[in-house]
């Protein structure tokens, strides 16, 4: 990922910022410029919202594939969490063994390194989930 491509999503990735439609109140993550249900009435009016950082495991998997960016993490847990605000967010779940993960388990967002270009390249930070104990 080139630097500008990573940089322009900083805020969304660092702070889990999505958008809210002022018309119907739906919250979206990833952020979007137009509400699929309110269309024109939402254009230019979508509001940035920081999504509350707690939720529950909605589904989970352990990925065993050789994904070059995640070599040091293999196998790694990947989940979709249903956040307390109702919006679903997918991401890695860390600091827990796969056998201890259950659907419905409370999780929260943690600030982590996601990838790096290489040992000399830019470090890309973002969100991962950790158990909410």
């Amino acid at each position: 990922m080139t630097i500008p491509r990573y940089w322009r999503e900083f805020q969304h990735r660092y702070r889990l910022i999505g958008t809210k439609c002022p018309k119907c109140g739906r919250i979206y993550f990833p952020p979007r410029e137009v509400c699929p249900y309110c269309h024109r009435e939402s254009i230019g009016k979508m509001q940035k919202v920081e999504i509350k950082n707690t939720g529950k495991v909605y589904s989970y998997t352990v990925i065993h594939q050789d994904v070059p960016d995640f070599k040091f993490l293999k196998p790694y847990l990947f989940i979709i969490a249903e956040m307390d605000s109702g919006v679903k967010v997918s991401g890695q779940l860390v600091d827990v063994s796969p056998e201890d993960v259950r659907i419905g388990m409370p999780v929260r967002i943690s600030f982590r390194r996601i990838r790096e270009e290489d040992r000399a390249g830019i470090i890309e930070y973002g969100y991962k989930f950790i158990p909410d104990e």
Binding site: Y60, T61, I63, Q65, V67, I79, I80, S90, I114, G126
Partner: peptide, 30 residues
Amino acid sequence: AEIVSGEVDQEWELFNGGTLAGLQALMARR
């Protein structure tokens, strides 16, 4: 693995490690 995952959302799925197989596994678990 990365190329076949090119059809999922690069910014919000694959960036975080969500491969095509991984995402389909989430469906299977559910």
